[in-house]
Design a protein around this nucleic acid. Structure first.
Lengths: 341, 341
DNA sequence: GTTTATAATGTAAGCGCTATCATGAGCGGC
DNA sequence: GCCGCTCATGATAGCGCTTACATTATAAAC
């Protein structure tokens, strides 16, 4: 840019000291006399000098920058994780860069190429459900990356993964939701979302099944509808389920994979003339910012995403190889009601 | 990390060539014989070598990383801008890092310190409304930064700013909204949002006033309520306005600064027993993903945030010093209705 | 006043690349 | 068979820092 870049040599010669001394005041070392410190600092200020973090990184082998891989930032759930991570990173002087999930897709890139060349000081990876065929590939990409930088996982992390992680206990969350709904008298409880083929023990639908079992309710295949995690898909899924069922068999409650799916369900229900929660209780997961403003306000699970993101950064920076579970709590709003007897 | 970092020297000696030759095949230069290229590439693959982008940056003076400063990622509006920018950046091999707005706040940091030291190849700054006393300070921080890297502005950019920018024409948007509402027969149109003291010609409320003038409607001070841009504030603002007015003077339409504020208004209206849109039309701005799922679905202005973010990156990379205007269009949904005569 | 520890500063060797310039091999043309 | 080319490759000087290590100045101890 316009101001010719001033280097440590310029400062040194201006101040009449060696570059080592400048370096010392830059890093706030103690063994510099107060007089020279001031003299050097004055020159630094006057010339508006900023040491190049990249030259610094050359010798310190550190970039003070972290990366995070998210499925999609447009889902506020991930935006919150990112925000929590970014804020925590900044506290320690780290920068946070976003990489799309496709960075791990070897069909598109050599993941390590883009990421490893950056010499990040660490990487956070938000794991959603992975189809089994894809999973092995992602896992190997992660292991590859790990040769270059510490990696911490967030989200839906199989216990078998040997990575530090802040995992959410999807099963427990869903189980609690079922318990909550049955406590309201529901017996016909549907679950919408997820992928059919999956066997992952941490999946949300496993919690659903466990919850049914706890309540001694039968698992009814028609109440289990699969869809991807968008509002549109959620609406479609509910419509399809209702269409396939005689009205007397319609569920009285729907558990949505997440709040987006729940939003789609509520809209689909309204359009079908089904009133929420009188005829159909709906509950989501993630407690997005808009949940309280839906009609009726959507019950959900607060998963403390910002805290989760921040915690992941702490693990990354501290280097602890721990697996933690993110805490969560059910947030009751008006979208779930006692079933009419 | 565990794999001792292999450098260009290792590759060179393994392949029995000089580091210059390795560098040539790394950068795909043409003047390398096919035989040595293959020989070198094989070693690179075998040793799983990734050139350090930071060492490279040392001599090329380029980091292939861009930064973006946003007020807050939690507002999906900004998440979309970020996403658009990030995707476009990646297409050109750039990385995108997030910096919070506070990075420009000299009361907290020396903005240039954190940002300039990173030697970013460019910076995007999303400008919201700035209180006049703060504005001068931010502007000077931006000018300071500009000595180190190109800067492109997005959003609410005063024409006087000498920065390349993708500005949105808030005034025109609001003016169109007023036109739309008057075309539905509304005469009592309120505007909620913004900051009272501001004089900025690009402010959304200026468009509101112009729109009223176009429609030969009086500007009524009680219909002009200020609040920050959150849903909660929006609800409070509407409540306060209604409380201050006799029912016969209640507005028949409310223009909200953005969709968050609109959400708050709709909820406040519902709680007050006012039906939207029969008794009160509501319209927002930004067309957030949840707008279609509100009750009633919220009319809004689509500001094509992703496109805007992408365009800003293009300006940054190409170095054009252009000021562009983001395009937009009104999205009609059910939250606005013809006023009952 | 000489010796020694101690604090303050300087010297110089990297860090892992890129880029410039030099060198050498191969080759057609006279 | 020598000249001048071109093309492939090597040698090397940075880039702007940090960091041993060396050196000098200062003070404390004898």
């Amino acid at each position: 840019m316009n101001s010719e870049n001033v280097t440590i040599y310029d400062i040194a010669s201006d101040a009449g000291v060696s570059i080592a001394t400048v370096s010392r005041v830059l890093r706030g070392e103690s063994n510099v006399s107060e007089a020279t410190r001031k003299k050097v600092q004055d020159v630094i200020d006057r010339r508006n000098y900023r040491p190049s973090s990249i030259a610094r990184g050359m010798t310190t082998k550190t970039t003070h920058s972290l990366g995070i891989i998210l499925p999609k930032l447009l889902n506020p759930h991930y935006a919150m994780i990112f925000t929590g991570a970014q804020e925590e990173a900044r506290k320690s002087g780290y920068t946070m860069s976003l990489f799309p999930w496709s960075s791990l897709d070897t069909r598109e890139y050599d993941p390590a190429a883009m990421l490893a060349e950056r010499r990040l000081d660490g990487l956070i990876v938000c794991v959603e459900y992975l189809p089994p065929d894809h999973e092995e590939q992602v896992l190997s990409a992660l292991r590859d990356l790990r040769q270059y930088m510490p990696v911490v996982l967030i989200g839906c992390v199989p216990p078998a993964y040997d990575f530090p992680a802040v995992a959410n206990n999807n099963a427990a969350m869903m189980q609690e939701i079922v318990r909550y709904l049955t406590s309201l008298g529901h017996e016909k409880i549907a679950f919408i979302g997820g992928v059919e083929e999956d066997q992952d023990p941490l999946r949300r639908d496993v919690g659903y099944e466990n919850g049914l079992r706890d309540a001694r309710l039968p698992y009814i295949a028609s109440y289990r509808v699969y869809c991807r995690g968008t509002a549109e898909d959620g609406g479609d899924a509910l419509r399809k389920m209702l269409a396939s069922l005689k009205e007397e068999y319609w569920p009285t409650a729907v558990i949505a994979l997440n709040d987006l799916v729940a939003m789609g369900c509520m809209t689909a229900a309204r359009e079908a003339g089904i009133s929420v929660p009188e005829q159909l209780s709906v509950i989501g997961c993630d407690n997005l910012f808009c949940a309280p403003y839906l009609v009726p306000p959507l019950s959900s699970i607060n998963t403390h995403q910002q805290r989760t993101g921040a915690r992941a950064v702490q693990l990354l920076i501290s280097g602890e190889n721990k697996k933690e579970t993110a805490d969560w709590e059910l947030v009751e709003r008006a979208s779930c009601a006692r079933v009419k007897s």
